[in-house]
């Protein structure tokens, strides 16, 4: 029946198309809720959620916290910068200590890929991945696909190009899984040094010329260069990267059809995207942020329904 096939949201890889459809149809209703005079429902009033952020975040953390509060859950926040993790406590110990305060769900961002899988085997709580290293960021991919669906009516058959630092991006991998499960075609575009070698095995196209990639697509998802994850030089300079892969109005005006432009944020204006493009009518960047709350409410609601009383 209509319930998720998983008990945790660790990655899009584990989800079925039916799961994604259920999340989207639930998110439609929550989008309606957050546009009402009273933007809150009492559904999760007996659920406590811990937001554990072992890595920096603005948008995702605020979006999750708002989603939790709009569902009436009790929320506690944790940031590793100000915690005992620095004193040598292990992940399982930290989380178990938090869970002993009777927490039902954990929303976690962690720099190590697979931290959530590891945790799900070792603790007794529902886990939602808010980003694990360069591995997956499932709720971002869901809200991206949801925004595409909202714009075009469906994801099926759409052509989506992901531009930029694919190698270090968890958004890229989760997006590839989510879009392909929904029947979209995916292309990645960027300098050869920032495209992982195995990417062809995921069934995505690779293109190194931005204008050609834009000619092909219906949607361009622009990614940030993740300098914090780069341990060596992948391109000569930011300026050179911008010359080749920065999206400008000139690119968009050269196209035969109007495409939509997305960005998971944070935007580096003037690097991967010009201000003109980011603020243009073709950009749905702020819609993505609004949809993020609705999609996260749907994920929290559907996973919470699996918590035993």
């Amino acid at each position: 029946m209509e319930t998720l096939s998983v008990n945790h949201i660790l990655g899009i890889k584990d989800l079925t198309k039916a799961d994604i459809d259920l999340i989207f149809s639930t998110a439609d209703e929550f989008k309606d809720v957050i546009n009402r005079p009273i933007k809150k429902v009492p559904t999760l009033r007996d659920i406590t959620i811990a937001n554990l952020f072992f890595e920096n975040s603005t948008r995702t953390k605020l979006s999750f916290e708002l989603a939790e509060k709009r569902l009436s859950a009790d929320v506690i926040n944790f940031a590793s910068a100000s915690s005992s993790v620095k004193k040598g406590e292990t992940l399982v110990d930290t989380v178990n200590n938090i869970l002993s305060m009777k927490v039902d769900m954990v929303v976690m961002r962690h720099p190590n890929p697979g931290a959530h899988q590891f945790l799900s085997r070792n603790i007794d709580a529902r886990i939602i991945n808010a980003g694990d290293g360069a591995h997956e960021h499932p709720t971002q991919a869901l809200l991206d696909a949801f925004s595409i669906r909202e714009n075009f009516g469906e994801v099926q058959g759409k052509k989506v190009v992901i531009v930029g630092d694919i190698l270090h991006s968890r958004v890229a991998l989760s997006n590839i899984y989510a879009l392909q499960k929904q029947g979209a075609e995916v292309m990645v575009c960027g300098p050869a040094t920032l495209i992982p070698k195995f990417i062809g095995s995921l069934g995505v196209k690779v293109e190194h010329n931005l204008q050609k990639a834009l000619d092909w697509c219906d949607v361009a998802n622009m990614l940030r260069i993740q300098l914090e994850r780069q341990d060596s030089k992948f391109f000569p300079s930011i300026r050179e990267y911008t010359m080749q892969y920065g999206l400008t109005m000139r690119h968009l005006n050269n196209l035969k059809k109007e495409i939509i432009v997305m960005h998971p944020g944070p935007i580096n204006r003037g690097v991967e995207i010009t201000s003109e493009v980011a603020d243009s009518g073709q950009s749905i960047i702020l819609n993505q942020v609004e949809n993020g709350v609705a999609v996260r409410m749907a994920v929290l609601y559907l996973i919470a329904s699996k918590i035993n009383r």
């Binding site: 209703e29 559904t43 609601y301």
Partner: peptide, 22 residues
């Protein structure tokens, strides 16, 4: 009006509670 998110039997039934349009 859909009442799904206001029900008092969330997590108390085996049936999942699927929302309708408001």
């Amino acid at each position: 009006l859909d009442i799904t998110f206001f029900r008092d039997d969330f997590r108390r039934t085996d049936k999942p509670l699927v929302a309708n349009e408001t």
